[in-house]
Design a protein around this nucleic acid. Structure first.
Length: 593
RNA sequence: GGAGCCGUAGUUCAGUCGGUUAGAACGCUGGCCUGUCAAGCCAGAGGUCGCGGGUUCGAGCCCCGUCGGCUCCGCCA
């Protein structure tokens, strides 16, 4: 019989109907005379009653032999449950099915874990992902992902974007992440690479007159994994022609309002904007969590001449001293402070100085190096109140920012300063185009080499590359980067100059990016866009804390931290014949070099 | 490339100072039970302590290696 209803949708209004439902046995409760089955499908649970008297002996016999995760076809009558027998915990709890016929559609081995367990090992879940995905939480996550994707498509379509697919087999270009390689059988010894992002293809589409493009694009990078990083992830990738930065940001704000709204999370544009320089100064990060204060305070000028060698020498050497005021940080134990010190060492800080503000004065081992007036000035500038602890890092600016920025976030969560219900969207703008490359001594693009420098920086592009600010912006949410974009270069001469600055002469640029330069030479519109991390967005929509996003929870079939798929059991070796077809040989594992 | 945590029953875990027969909960199997809904009661089965080596009279426990999972740094334009 054809399915007439989904399990989770039956209600008192269906009472009296004979229905056919199909699904998995979620649980079975055998009372000897009567057996209750909870039947589960995507919509939820429904109680099936197998009663040899009210139903049929045959149905009761099948129910008796059924086990967890058997797939059943149940035909029966919808009835109201008796007085006091309702189950308010499930939406179908007012009704039940008196089974007339039960058919086993598929038997099932005992599942390796119970679906309603609170704690299931990640390894088990990945190994048996097909069972893990049956759990309501995972079904919900996939539903939220789908709805968010639909919202994005609907909004962008309404804004006259075209969804266009771009190739998965691409040309290798330098820079960026390590590529996944795909051998080309037809031209042995040559390779395609899988896209790290559709960046160059979407810029090409702008030159092709598509005006507005978007794609839910899979992006592949052969780099080490993290909880928030998989070898393949999905971006809402979009690009717009004949626009300036403001129009792009407004469009993305509209998109995010719709996408977050699709999951019932109300946000409103316009989002606040902050320059990169301000963000680094106040938060020590280019992705600040603005849900709480504890901003960084510079006290370099106050301690430049004090007897404390650590501070004085750092400042004399061109460094700085900054601190954060930790509210009620006085509760931090000695061990806590040791842990925090060890924490900041991971990010290059040599130590962590502290001053406790107490009712009857200050307490710190460094007070003896600081004149009283300086002590007071520091406390005053940092807004220290009794009970607070002031924490300081002295180092070069990049280390100070990184160490204190991360410390701030850690403490913000540890001390419960973060309002987890808030969604703070923020634009960070005016990123530098380049950053120093300690490996080569030269410079390297902060994002990618296709972003347009601010007009006033064009003159100093070659003379002061590190000072060049670009029309580059990140979308930040609760301290997590959701996306990154820019106005692109569409002038081949400017593109060549930027490539030159990162060490690529004209010949090399033509070889590596010749097609892009050619695209520009035949007439490209001013354009720009963004790539938004769809997995991260969905994770936040599913209620994850931005700091601890685990995108494996919103990806149907994720990889482990070493890039393995435990369900498929890949990657695997490839047999010789298959390798021979693409003229490849695997080198033996050696302990060389 | 580096650092750390973990690996014991089907699952989640406990396992004292290195000491006799490795435990619990849930699940599973069988029995009882006509209103449960994480059903209940009774009984039972279930272990290469990831793998390999070493130390020791004796190793789940200590050491070395290895495999796997997780986290972080580097990396990820």
């Amino acid at each position: 019989m054809r399915r007439t209803h989904k399990c989770g949708l039956l209600r008192p209004e269906h009472v009296g109907q004979t229905v056919c439902v199909k699904g998995w046995v979620n649980s079975r409760r055998d009372h000897g005379g009567v057996i209750f089955l909870d039947l589960r499908d995507r919509t939820g649970l429904l109680q099936i009653v197998a009663d040899p008297e009210r139903g049929t002996p045959e149905a009761h016999a099948i129910a008796d032999g059924s086990r967890a995760e058997y797939v059943l076809d149940v035909v029966g009558e919808v009835v109201m449950r008796g007085e006091g027998l309702e189950n308010p915990r499930i939406p179908t709890g007012q009704v039940e099915i008196i089974a007339k016929t039960i058919t086993v559609l598929c038997r099932a081995e005992h599942p390796p874990f119970e679906l309603d367990d609170e704690v299931i090992g990640l390894e088990q879940r990945m190994r048996y992902r097909f069972i893990d995905l049956r759990r309501p939480e995972m079904q919900r996550n996939l539903q939220i992902r789908h709805t968010a994707a639909q919202a994005a498509r609907a909004y962008l379509s309404s804004q006259e974007f075209l969804e266009i697919e771009t190739p998965l087999l691409l040309k290798a270009t330098p820079e960026g992440a390590r590529d996944f390689l795909v051998p080309c059988r037809l031209v042995p010894g040559t390779f395609y690479v899988l896209p790290q992002s559709p960046q160059l293809m979407k810029q090409t589409l702008m030159a092709s007159g598509c005006d507005r493009y978007f794609q839910l694009a899979r992006c592949l990078r052969d780099e080490d994994l993290r909880a928030d990083r998989q070898p393949e992830h999905t971006q809402i990738d979009l690009e717009m022609s004949f626009v300036e930065q403001d129009e792009i940001l407004e469009t993305i704000e509209g998109l995010m309002v719709e996408v977050f709204g699709s999951a019932g999370r109300t946000i409103a544009g316009p989002f606040p904007r902050m320059t990169y320089a301000e963000s680094m100064r106040r938060y020590g990060s280019d992705k600040p969590d603005t849900r709480f204060g504890v901003e960084l305070t510079d006290i370099s000028d106050l301690v430049a001449d004090v007897d404390f060698q650590v501070f004085r020498n750092v400042i004399a050497g061109g460094g700085q001293v900054k601190g954060i005021c930790v509210p009620a940080g006085g509760n931090l134990s000695r061990k806590d402070l040791d842990d925090l010190t060890s924490f900041v060492r991971d990010f290059g800080a040599k130590g962590l100085a502290w001053i406790a503000v107490e009712e009857d004065g200050l307490r710190s081992v460094i007070l003896k190096f600081l004149p009283e007036a300086i002590q007071q000035a520091i406390v005053e500038r940092m807004g220290g109140k009794p009970g607070d602890v002031l924490l300081f890092v002295a180092d070069k600016p990049s280390v100070v920012a990184d160490a204190l920025g991360r410390l701030r976030v850690k403490l913000g969560h540890q001390l419960g300063l973060v309002d987890k219900d808030r969604i703070d969207m923020l634009w960070v703008t005016d990123f530098p185009l380049f950053e120093a490359d300690p490996n080569t001594g030269g410079v390297t693009p902060m994002h990618h080499p296709f972003s347009m420098p601010n007009p006033e920086c064009l003159e100093t592009l070659e003379s002061d590359p590190l000072g060049v600010v670009a029309q580059l912006y990140d979308l930040v949410c609760n301290g997590a980067e959701l996306g990154s974009g820019s106005i692109r270069i569409h002038d081949p001469e400017i593109q060549l100059r930027v490539l030159k600055v990162i060490g690529m002469d004209r010949e090399e640029a033509e070889e590596k990016f010749g097609f892009l330069l050619e695209v520009f030479r035949y007439g490209a519109p001013p354009h720009g866009g963004v790539g938004l991390g769809f997995d991260r967005i969905v994770a936040i929509l599913c209620g994850q804390e931005a700091k601890d996003v685990d995108i494996r929870e919103v990806i149907a079939f994720p990889k482990t931290s070493t890039g393995r798929d435990l369900m498929l059991g890949c990657p695997t070796a490839i047999d010789a014949a298959q390798l021979a077809e693409v003229k490849l040989a695997v080198l033996p594992e050696e302990d060389e070099v």
